[in-house]
Design a protein around this nucleic acid. Sequence first.
DNA 1: ACCGCCGGGTGCC
DNA 2: ACCGCCGGGTGCC
Length: 983
Amino acid sequence: MSWRYSGARCSRIPRVGSSWNFLQSVQYGRTGNPSIFSSPDILFKFEADHILSNDDSMSAEEDLESSVLFGSLKGSVVGLRYYTGVVNNNEMVALQREPDNQYDHNAVKVNNVNGDQVGHIKKELAAALAFIMDRKLARIEGIVPYGARNAFIMPVNLSFWGSQENKQAVLQQMQLHGFKLAPGFLLASSQFNFASGPNMKASVIPAVQMTTEQLKTEFDKLFEDLKEDDKTQMMEPSQALGTVLLPHQKHALAWMVSRENSNELPPFWEQRNKLYYNTLTNFAEKEKPDTIRGGILADDMGLGKTLSVIALLLTNFHGGQPFPIAKASTKLKKESVDVEMYGETSKHSKGKKENPTNSQGPSSSQTSSKRPKRKPGKKAKYTYSSDSENDCQIIPQKIKASAFPEEDVFAVALSWETPTEKKKSKTQKGPSTTGSSIPKTLSSSTSGEQRRTTLIICPLSVLSNWIDQFEQHVKPEVQLNICVYYGPERSQDPNVLSQQDVVLTTYTVVTHDYTRKTDSPLHKVKWLRVVLDEGHTIRNPNAQQTKATHSLVAERRWILTGTPIQNSLKDLWSLLSFLKLKPFTDREWWHRTIQRPVTMGDQGGLSRLQALIKNTTLRRTKTTKIKGKPVLQLPGRKVFIQHIELSDEEQRIYNSVRDEGKAVINKYFNEGTILTNYADVLVVLVRLRQLCCHPHLVSSSLTSTASTKSGAPGELYEKLVNKMKIVLSSGSDEECAICLESLNMPVITHCAHVFCKPCICQVIHNEQPNAKCPLCRREISGGDLVECPEEESDSTMKQDQKWMSSSKINALLQALIKQRNKDPQVKSIVVSQFTGFLTLIETAIRESGFIFTRLDGSLTQKKRTEAIQSFQSSDAHSPTIMLLSLKAGGVGLNLTAASRLYLMDPAWNPAAEEQCFDRCHRLGQTKDVIITKYVVKDSVEENMLKIQDKKREVAAGAFGTKKPTPSEIKQARIAEIKTLVDL
DNA sequence: ACCGCCGGGTGCC
DNA sequence: ACCGCCGGGTGCC
């Protein structure tokens, strides 16, 4: 049985140790108003974006985080009578270059918030501005102080924003044309200066490194000041839901239902007389802006966002009514209905579902036979061909999914194909269908026009989770039509889709259809609801998938994400734009009204942001309280460090390798070549760490580190690849010294430094033709980069050695056996960074009679799932031990069956350890979790703990800390090495 | 008058 | 635009 999970991710996952810029508070001095605005503890600039940015629409967008006010100027807008756009007093306007204007190539258009042209900037001024705008020296914003009644021309107050280094050029250019910028900001009619004078310079941007966890905290502070006026209302779900909701889930349901049925004006809009006013831009229009029927459900991971959405679509189907539940008679009838299953006709048997527990996640080993629609045996055949490492390119070979109407039966989705089925004749060409059948009266009795379908878009890796959760939580008698829109033979008929209740698909599919199909069925359907799961996938405004999702037509729109702001405030734009929140659908208005003010520390901007979030977002964290109780009560977690003493023999080997290594490293220090030989240093460290675990781990391949200079290119390649593998497997920092993030597509330079391929390519491109390695300044070129070949299982161990135990293994065994004597049911996870060590441990625990399973990076997707499921099973003969490699599995990995975890070797990065602990200490865990960290006394491992502490310290005191410069990174690395080898 | 002044025509870029 | 600018009409007091 089982749906397979593809570990593939189409999105970038949150990384630990990303770089943030935290904007300090800015004090705006103004006479009579000496208020000191408190610092918004968010805000944030994401560094790596410039690599991707090929901006289209926006001018001078880059670096807006560091933009300062150059000054302001009064100008005029002319030619009003030729255009339809109107503006109110104090309304914001946008300037747009019009180089192709036949009368003046310097022409600058002036548009209102709606994008309608109002007029042109007077030509003399335009001549000055064109130069600045074309070169993106400044972003120029306009406010029309008095625009309501002007027939021919109107005044406009322009303010100029840009990065400090462009200020002089801008002032000069203006002066050249006889214009002088006044300092300060011309706000509306009354010109008051804010942010003028010496204080202006205060917008320095110290950057800090924050863990994802910390960023979340910063984000959550936004919510702190919101007064709790939502009375935490709760709502009982429809009968169709077979699961009892937790209180916070009932609250989410109430919130979502009320938002979907709301008629309120969107935030920042109010009705004045016959017009609708936007209070941010002072724009007004006759038409009522669309109500936002949806929002962002930003609950922390593990709080049940998926379940909340399933509850929503059952409870608020349409017209505020719940989804209809079949009556008994209908049910009986249905059980005997023939179902089309990939051309094969089969009767299906009714399963039963008794699963009131609110469990979630892929763990559910009991998800089979929950629904009456499916033959249990079939389910197992759902396979993805995901052997490709290239996440986004995975094309399933076997899953076929879609649905189409038959005479009076809908044969539906969740379909798959097996070799045996395949040989059977297909009764129709085109998409195969299978699954449940539904009498038309039930499923599509609605008048043709009524929207009924919810489209759910998620990364491929969680697609099966959705399927599981539907099975788990929807009562079997509820005939919900679900179609998985995925696979090469997915139906191209929009009518098929619009007759479903739920269509599940992935971002990749949506994007693919959007970009390559002339008419994508997904984009033709008028959806009742579109739900974006892991909605932060669309945070890049320029990404195709962002555009693809933005262009879907839906009445209600939801975004699910645990991290609405992943890197910077910028991330929110795509989400709000997806919600069709006027005027934020246009990035300029978002930027002017929220992003720029907030990043500059403007109090008003911050409160607007708060109002906005409050209006659109529901967020609870694990510690959020509802009626005084935390939403989730996780069992306790204790971490013990157990110190290990090596045996005399082990110690002897360790000492000799350590002394030899120290000598080498010392030599590098004295030569000042420590960084040029960084990979060699890592080799020493890895060997020492391995020796702490088991002497046999030290392989001969790693031993040969002496740089034997050789001319053979093949040999050099081998050596570089080998070094890169060491760096990657060393668990050292794994971060790229350029973007400071986890390595993405690692490549190694000839000087043996590893970077993200995109990062180093960018550097090489920028510094052409004399690019140098950022770490050691040796010359490099694009052709020198060596990529990491496909991962093969590490065979670094000496094969022919006879197995023996080690001090650490002994300690582990002792603990495991003791635990087994106390309670044989308790399950344990044994974690190491060295898969070879896991193999050695295997022998030991096998001999002691433990049943175990193993999960590491080398497993195929299928085997992975098998390993997880067998371990999670409560079956009496199921494994009680999981051998886990530290990095195996993403954040989603759920191993709650275990309540003990043994970390065999300390990780370089404390956050990696934490993430690992969370795999069993998470929702679904019922027991207190006890974690044991083994650390060899007086060894490199103890020194690693020191480094961990230091890293935690740095992370904790993150605020106000400067972004490290490249040389500081180097220094830090050198210091780390010193600490590690006691130099 | 190679001016001033008047008043009509006219009007973005 | 209840402006400015243009160019034609006009010209003592």
